[in-house]
Amino acid sequence: MDGVMSSTKSISSTGEKLRRSPPNTYFPQVTFLSEEILILVQRQGNALELCQITWEDPPVLNTLCVLVLPALQRGISCVMVECQGDQIVAPQDILARSRRLPFVSDPNATVLCFTLGFRQVFGGYDYLRSVSFWVRRSSLREYAVRGGNQNYPWDSWGPSTTRWTDWEHGLAPCRPGGSRSALFPLLIEVGTGNPIVIRDFHPERVRRALSRSKGPSWSDGRLKVVTESSMIEKGDEFLDDIISSLPYCEATSEKRYGYHEVLIDDERIRGDDEGTLDVHLMI
């Protein structure tokens, strides 16, 4: 569970139930946007449900809005959902963190990374397809604040506020740190390793990078800025190709590493090489 605050813990300690729902209504993943606003992922509805804890007696969980995800093919359902991102930092802790770190992430620019898994059987073999998308916490909070228990179709909210990637392209996203997310290769090149790829979704960093270019996107080899839309193919799971356009900067390390996973926070990049943990300062 992501970023559960003390006020929410008090509910679990008293055994209060915020809501009773039929089995398999939601995936077990719960992500908090704030101390009182959380995200549930609907199994049948294929959507993000933003809810708020209302401090009544007893406390209740009210739906603020529903953000529908890209439509699936008939007979297809998601079998796994994972959401990763920084834990919620209490306001009084932000100053303390900023004093001991080289820089601290802007809470309004931090991103969450959702991964959806689909399993099918072809010729007796299991096939698992994973896709992921990044979205800023602030974008989700904007819809939560509107309230009204409205349903927002995918085309009305998703393409402009998310950026999708398909694991079949060879890179899988790691847990974001602030507005940044590392991607690591699913297959490691023996003997040479792979470069580390970092994506930064902070809007101010994207703006500054674009100020040095003449077009909406640019690349100089290891560094690039992407503001144009990208597409992942619908495959056998989705009804249509998925278009997304959340801007980002991307940096690729010059050196190559044999890491199996990369972790990132405000201060460091940590590479895991079968039990050996290397640490690199963020630059």
Rank of each mutant, 00 (worst) to 15 (best):
Q87G: 14
V206Y: 01
T162C: 12
C113Q: 10
L263K: 02
S179P: 04
D220F: 10
E254Q: 04
D220A: 12
I39F: 01
D86R: 00
S138F: 09
L112P: 02
M231I: 13
L67H: 02
S229L: 09
C78Y: 01
E237C: 14
V66G: 00
S160Q: 14
G271A: 11
R97K: 13
L101A: 12
R19I: 13
M5A: 07
L246A: 11
F133K: 07
E49L: 10
I232M: 06
I53N: 03
R180P: 01
S98N: 06
E261M: 00
V4S: 08
T54H: 10
E204K: 09
V68Q: 14
A47P: 03
Y259R: 02
L210P: 10
A182I: 08
R205E: 15
Y152P: 10
N24C: 12
W157T: 04
G275A: 10
I188P: 02
L64F: 03
P185L: 04
T161Q: 11
S98M: 11
V41F: 05
P28A: 08
R74D: 09
L246C: 08
P70W: 04
M1R: 13
P70L: 06
I232Y: 01
Y259T: 01
P91A: 05
F122V: 14
E250W: 02
P59S: 05
S138Q: 11
L223E: 15
P173I: 12
D273H: 14
W55V: 08
A172D: 00
P195A: 11
T252V: 14
R212I: 12
V79C: 14
V104K: 00
G258N: 08
T31P: 01
R119V: 15
G85A: 07
I53R: 01
G123N: 13
G147I: 04
Y125E: 14
S219I: 03
S156P: 00
S132M: 07
G147L: 04
F201L: 09
N108F: 06
P107Y: 05
L101E: 13
R129S: 10
S139A: 15
P23G: 08
G258D: 06
S98L: 09
L223N: 15
Y257T: 03
H280I: 15
A209P: 00
A90D: 02
W157H: 06
D126M: 07
L33F: 05
S156E: 07
